[in-house]
Amino acid sequence: MNGSRILACFLFLVWATWCYAFAGYWSSSGSAWVPDIGLVLALSVMARAEVGDAPILALLATLARASFSPEPPIVLLAGFAAIVFLAITARSAVELTGPLWRTIAALVLVLVFNAWLAFARAVRDPSADVVHVGVLSAALPVAISSALLAFAAGPLFAHLPGLKPMRRRPW
């Protein structure tokens, strides 16, 4: 890995951290429609990244989200690895950079990611008893707003300053 790609990874980490910080700040108003901006950024970059870079992206996204998230890092890492796996599988069949598919991918993958977090919490801490209260329904507005964000700003995220060395396929 050359210097420019290392710098790109570092800048992706900074951008992802900022995305999560902004989403957290936005959510403090109590709005349920705050998109998972960090995940949309990761998907936008992953759509054109090398397959070999995917685990690195998952690791960096985990690091950024762990800064503000209550979930254990290992749960986040497994969640992002799942997202990477699904995204790579999906992009072998459809064009994830297109408006329709990037919107659908964001909707589905944000739901999958939140379902995984809820499931992991329920298994790790049965006393929390959180599944029955329908917390998953809280993830639906996030998934919809994330999909809209991916539709409107997907290319913008992929072209954030410093991320060019991570794009191996043209957008």
């Binding site: 910080a21 989403a23 957290g24 700040y25 959510s27 960090g38 503000f68 993830a139």
Partner: peptide
Amino acid sequence: ILAGSVSAL
């Protein structure tokens, strides 16, 4: 550290 949460749940 941040007056907000990134987790929807």
